[in-house]
Amino acid sequence: MRRVFVYGTLRPGQRNHHYMATARHCGAYTTPACFTLLDTGPYPAALDEGKTALIGDVFEVDEDSFAALDRLEDYPVHYTRRQIGTDHGQAWIYLWIAARDPAWPTIAHGDWRRHVETAG
């Protein structure tokens, strides 16, 4: 089993949460304020730089689910991943590494779910 910190469409109530169907929800977590969160349109992209805390959830996934997440995130083409410390233990986070569109707005409060709920 591996832990994964999710901050976007994989969170509960979001459109890709079905990828977490067999995962165990460990709990909510907010990262330290050292990232940047961008709105690409259909999904967020977190950068491994900045001053924003990401709001999300930690899940424990099996190896098949972890491989499915790698495919969803187009790892290692659009996203890379690294481990971060959380209140629930070490967890993988997916971080954007592909080209950025300068028109993508920054989500200063770091909460994708709140962002899409207030935008719609």
Rank of each mutant, 00 (worst) to 15 (best):
T36E: 02
V58G: 03
R82K: 15
W96A: 01
D74F: 05
R3S: 06
G41Y: 08
A68V: 03
R3F: 09
K51G: 09
P32A: 07
L10T: 11
D57W: 13
H78K: 13
Y19D: 03
T106F: 12
A33E: 10
H115L: 01
I107T: 11
F5D: 12
T86H: 06
Y43K: 02
W104G: 10
M20I: 06
F66W: 13
L72T: 04
T106E: 15
L69R: 02
G85Y: 11
H17W: 00
G110V: 11
T30I: 13
L37M: 13
A91G: 03
H25G: 01
R113V: 13
A119S: 14
T80Q: 05
S65Y: 00
K51H: 13
R82V: 08
T80P: 07
I93Q: 08
V116T: 15
C34D: 14
P12R: 14
A108M: 10
F5Q: 10
R11Y: 05
P32I: 00
P32E: 12
R82I: 07
Y19R: 08
F35Q: 05
T106W: 13
A108D: 15
Y75V: 15
E73M: 12
A33V: 03
A68W: 02
A45P: 10
I84E: 12
D70V: 04
I93D: 15
T9V: 11
G50M: 08
G56E: 07
A23F: 03
R114N: 11
R24Q: 10
P102Q: 00
V77Q: 12
T106G: 07
D87H: 10
A67R: 14
R71D: 01
A33M: 04
A67E: 13
I55L: 00
G85D: 14
N16I: 03
W112V: 10
T9G: 05
A103Y: 12
G8E: 06
A53L: 00
G85N: 14
A28K: 09
P42V: 01
A119R: 11
